[in-house]
Nucleic acid binder design. Structure first.
Lengths: 336, 336
DNA sequence: CGCCATTATGTTAACGATAACAATCGGCGG
DNA sequence: CCGCCGATTGTTATCGTTAACATAATGGCG
């Protein structure tokens, strides 16, 4: 069977007895088309099953209606959720989303990815790359490419949407202090992540404001495994009664380490996470955690990006901050 | 600042003192270009920072070098991992990936999504949609659009890559029987999911072959919450000693339900999951589970798809089955 | 030494849409 | 009754590339 060529605009035009330009006008809702003509054209489109070729359209309009997304490890809950939000919002606005997931987030791979997308003709890019190195790669972006970063709290000339990491960490830490814990230990994320930095900073600031001792943060890498390792270290330390882990997965590891050590959660130790992944509610015990509204982040990204794309001239740098939520479950309890 | 037009092929040609066609030849590695000319052209490309316009290229070649991916809820670990694998493999092969995530997987939204991608000019589509309704939407695909489905074990004329769900479930069930359990209870996934069906079937077949009673499966919806509910029901039943949950999240819920009921895992009850999500290793206790190699699935999808795209005529229907793995951890133990 | 097969390059025409401009048709004011 | 205006439609150029064909330079060989 020969693959028959899909119909093009002039096929529709011929069938409807008009010029291809009139077909184009109908398709683009131009006002000056007689109602009767429009109907004939629409009938022809329907009959032929015509679909306009967006590639040709993109060439002449130099708008591909495609947005690029560059992200680090899209299997992580945070990035995956954010991208989901981005995709939904973009599609609603009539845009396609082209994704590049990177294994490593050094400046050059981010740059390459953006270049790759640029070549494809994306109208703008969202970079979900909350590492310092990635954020700095954005600095070298051509300024005429609409771009939005999803990140912690980095300052730059690139627009950004972020969840207030510092405030989230403050909520968590304050919650633990209010339960009567003398101080709060912290299992931190990798130091080159802006989110890890923000969470660390929020945690530290609350302790300092309250005049409490600031214990050495235990470094992790977001994985449950690293949380488990940190948890083992903490379990060996006398007097640890409250731990704030920089994400839920590490909190899970911490939980497991204490449980193994025979320390009861939350009776003997309180644990708070960050992210509110779907599993958290069903850990043993259910995890108290900071909730991030990734959907909102995705939506805002698209809003900002579309504003930039629609701006005729140079565009402003915008910075949107989404407030975090806090979910109290059963992994925290008053200090004894 | 005026956005200056990016250089095009003829700019390069002018600078290099050749025709634009020669530039095109250099870019496409045509053999008949003098070495010296090639060097001049490359230098000009470099000097101007020229990048070829893939949109124009796609128009004339009618190849966009973009693949479409239609998926259900990309925040789930399975789809997210599969898409990650797809994206990596596609990019390695020089293809872009355009993603559409659907909130619901009825046949018409799958069809719409594919049509949407077709309009954009994708060279092929991967449908990560292991629900019966989605699979049947594929039947109505135009046969000249290269397509691959990621799915359970549905028969169709569309090529498919799948993990052997039945075998995975058999591994899990057999493992529990070998530990001496009289029978195995099952917390199943939603009945319209092909994966849920395969896992149910594998579980049932092993029990029947062993001549064991086949208890009523407990329906779930993949969420930890539904697993928790099922777990509560199971905990109320006398003589339940082994549970095979159709995914890790539900296994987590089951775990929690039993723990709450004061039943010890694995001493009094053994639990097996499916997926091997990163968290599973750190549940309390660490979960014995069936591992799916999503990366391999993604890679195979792209291989099959590219074969179809490169085939000049009609292409064969292929069906690749990826074997599951099995990971024994601490949530299972010999029956008492 | 001249002819033909290569090799290297240039020229022109697609691809399928939109944009800019031109042309036709009524209606209406002068 | 003429000419101008706005509504409607058609014609032609254009986007930036590759494909097809045309042409010019080489080089081997009888």
């Amino acid at each position: 069977m020969t693959r028959r060529r899909p119909p093009v605009m002039s096929d529709v035009a011929r069938l409807a007895g008009v010029s291809h330009q009139t077909v184009s006008r109908v398709l683009n809702d131009h006002p000056n088309v007689r109602e009767q003509t429009r109907a004939r054209v629409l009938a022809a489109i329907d009959e032929l099953g015509y679909r306009r070729n967006l590639v040709a359209r993109a060439l002449v309009t130099s708008r591909s209606r495609t947005l690029g997304v560059v992200s680090f490890d899209t299997t992580l809950y945070g990035p995956a959720s954010t991208i989901y939000g981005i995709e939904q919002a973009a599609r609603t606005a009539g845009y396609f989303v082209s994704i590049v997931s990177l294994k490593s987030l050094d400046a050059s791979s981010v740059r390459d990815a953006i270049e790759y997308l640029t070549e494809q003709g994306v109208d703008g890019v969202v970079v979900v790359a909350p590492q310092r190195s990635a954020a700095s790669a954005l600095e070298s972006l051509p300024t005429d490419m609409p771009a939005v970063a999803v990140e912690g709290t980095h300052r730059s000339h690139v627009s950004a949407v972020c969840i207030d990491q510092i405030e989230g960490a403050r909520l968590a830490t304050r919650h633990l202090l209010e339960l009567g814990h003398e101080t709060v230990w912290h299992v931190s994320g990798p130091s080159d992540w802006l989110e890890a930095e923000g969470r660390l900073e929020g945690w530290r600031s609350v302790l300092e404001e309250a005049g409490r001792p600031v214990p050495e943060p235990q470094p992790g890498d977001w994985s449950p495994r690293s949380g488990y390792a940190a948890g083992k270290r903490l379990a060996a330390i006398e007097g640890v009664t409250a731990v704030f882990a920089a994400n839920d997965q590490m909190a899970l590891g911490v939980l497991r380490a204490f449980t193994e050590a025979g320390v009861k959660v939350p009776e003997q130790i309180s644990i708070v996470g960050f992210d509110d992944i779907p599993e958290s509610e069903f850990f043993s015990p259910p995890l108290t955690t900071v909730r991030q509204d990734f959907d909102a982040v995705g939506r805002h990204c698209i809003e900002v990006l579309l504003r930039q794309i629609d701006a005729s001239g140079p565009f402003d740098t915008e910075r949107l901050v989404v407030p975090p939520g806090f979910v109290v479950r059963a992994s925290t309890a008053p200090a004894v």
